[in-house]
Design a protein around this nucleic acid. Structure first.
Length: 540
RNA sequence: GGCCGCGUACCCAAGUGGCUAAGGGGACGGUUUGCAAAACCGUUAUUCGCCGGUUCGAGUCCGGCCGCGGCCUCCA
């Protein structure tokens, strides 16, 4: 039974979908504000819901998944104005990068990627409803604000009482804005162009604006998620994901708007059943960061921010521009629980790469064993479990079998599911994956080099391989090494060198053989010799 | 000031009342190998920040202390 830690109750709750048949699950994740490149934090914020979704699908649910782009907001406008660009051109650039990065990270595509600017009408309808129901008001300066005092449940999600937070905050409250609003927590739902501060209004016609009954302007940030989740999923829906930082104010405000604007449709119910928030990726402070006190340097992580110059850009980490396999980033993220912060340092990606490599080597060993069993067949494809085998494998009696690999496979699947059922404990699930890899390696190591692989062994390997591939896919890993970037001349030349090396070794000219191996390694090709004069070359 | 979270081996990290504290990385020793690599075997936490309490029993619950982080302003 899957249990999810719900941010709203702060408790692990058994997961029950809203769907009366219990089949469909509706999921929404707050996507990025597309004004800059993605960093490692964005990777985590995308991988977390991806694994939630994949696990739900593994459990037989049909998931409808929607994530948005915030493609209009002050940061975007400021940057577009500063660079003399049309803001749409700016956002298109980063939406494009987002899709490329998601592809690299093997994040399953969403069913819809709505953008704020395509839903201005829907947002205005919500503003209208809110104003009509007296949940929103026109402030002294003409902007439209949500009235937090009008919504009893306001603060229920983030457990905040704004009055109690004011002490000690004197220097950080925007006194000017406070003068025009009714309550400190009231937030913008419609912002008038004429109220823009100078650095924005100097953009002139480049500043986007939409007509509204309250005057030309643009929507408040939180509004888009209310509008788009209602449109693409309907309210209420099952699971809402996002970064920890969005809990307040973004999700609190989004929830308030949704529940006030659609209160009739919701019939008093809340708009979201399960709130899932992932923790940050932070970075170790560096001594040269002048804004950080010296005694903090040796501590845990600090948040990535551009002013500190410590942002870890995703595209600079992963291939082709960076040194790491994108799956290593996924491995890093899934190696700890999604609610624990990750203090990033590059060595963690080295470790994740090593972990990944162990899994790939295990997969290789299983496939090789199966090839040997099939004698002569060079193509290792087609060894994944078929439906009949899967069904057979689900038989709990398999655990009592005397083929140890079958027993260990069943054990691994059970441990994997138990861990994932416990609020998506991917670190625990990975430990089950490694146990399976070890069991398969043990079996492979026990095979005599020249003896045939028996049918019994082959069955064990096939079950283990099929299961491992399946579990890896639940976690979003590709079940084989990344294909070499170009299988062109380079690969052919490597093959030629390896043949030459084999001849040298056959003639016991080991110095030459080792030289070729060393030089290839320097070029990024790891050479492994296999029994029977065969070899394996792994591109780093 | 309010709210939330974290502190488990050399490193990453799971474990939230009860068999010997997962798993991975690293290191060291062994098997295998022409030498490597990969793989296999073994070693690496009598102890879970510190102090006290509850309990037959606590890393796990409660209280205090110390250290660290996040949110309260745009933020994944």
């Amino acid at each position: 039974m899957l249990r999810i830690l719900n941010s709203q109750s702060r408790k692990k709750e058994p997961f029950t979908p809203l769907d009366p048949v219990g089949k469909r699950v509706l999921m929404y994740t707050c996507g990025p504000t597309v004004y800059d490149s993605l960093h490692l934090g964005h990777a985590r914020a995308a991988i977390t819901p991806d694994v939630v979704r994949r696990y739900l699908e593994y459990q037989g649910y049909q998931v409808r998944y929607v994530t948005n782009f915030t493609d209009v907001d002050d940061k975007i406008i400021r940057r577009a104005v500063a660079e003399g660009l049309d803001y749409r051109k700016l956002t298109a650039t980063y939406i494009d990068e987002f899709h490329r990065m998601m592809l690299a990270l093997n994040v399953k595509p969403a069913d819809a990627y709505p953008r704020a600017t395509d839903h201005i009408d829907e947002m205005l309808q919500i503003v209208e409803r809110l104003v009509k129901a007296k949940h929103a008001y026109v402030a002294l300066d003409g902007d439209v604000y949500f009235d937090t005092s009008s919504f009893e449940r306001y603060g229920a999600l983030s457990k905040r009482k704004l009055e109690e937070e004011e002490a000690g905050l004197s220097g950080r409250i925007d006194e000017e804005r406070l003068k025009v609003k009714k309550n400190r927590g009231d937030f913008l739902v419609w912002k008038l162009l004429k109220n823009d501060k100078e650095e924005l209004s100097k953009g002139g016609d480049a500043v986007p604006r939409w007509a509204s009954p309250w005057g030309d302007g643009r929507p408040g940030w939180h509004l888009e998620c209310s509008a788009m989740s209602a449109k693409y999923l309907g309210l209420p829906f099952d699971i809402h994901c996002g970064g920890m930082d969005l809990l307040f104010p973004h999700h609190e405000d989004e929830k308030a708007q949704s529940e006030c604007a659609f209160c009739k449709e919701l019939g008093g119910k809340e708009s979201v059943n399960y709130w899932v928030h992932n923790a940050f990726v932070t970075v170790k402070a560096r001594p040269q960061d002048a804004t950080i006190a010296a005694d903090l340097v040796d501590s845990g992580g600090v948040k990535m921010s551009k002013s500190l110059g410590n942002v870890k850009w995703l595209r600079e980490m992963i291939r082709p521009a960076g040194p790491f396999d994108p799956m290593a980033v996924r491995m890093l993220m899934l190696s700890s629980h999604y609610r624990s912060p990750i203090v990033f340092e590059p060595a963690l990606l080295d470790e994740a790469t090593a972990r990944l490599e162990r899994i790939y080597n295990g997969l290789d060993a299983m496939r090789e064993a199966l090839v040997r069993a099939a004698r002569g067949k060079e193509d290792t494809r087609g060894y994944e479990l078929n439906a009949e085998e899967l069904a057979r494998f689900s038989d709990p009696n398999l655990k009592t079998t005397r083929v140890p690999l079958l027993k260990n496979t069943a054990k691994a699947r059970e441990a994997f599911t138990a861990a994932m059922d416990d609020d998506f404990n991917t670190a625990g699930a990975l430990s089950a994956v490694f146990d399976l890899v070890t069991a398969a390696n043990q079996e492979a190591a026990a095979l005599k080099p020249d003896a045939p692989v028996t049918e019994g062994h082959a069955t064990g390997f096939r079950m283990a391989l099929g299961t491992l591939v399946e579990l890896l896919q639940v976690l979003g890993f590709r079940p084989q090494r990344e294909a070499a970037a170009s299988a062109g001349d380079g690969e052919a030349l490597v093959e030629l060198l390896m043949k030459t090396r084999a001849e040298a070794r056959a003639a016991k000219q080991f110095a030459l053989g080792d030289k070729i191996r060393d030089e290839l390694k320097a070029l990024g090709y790891d050479v492994e010799d296999l029994p029977g004069g065969k070899w394996k070359v792994k591109k780093k």
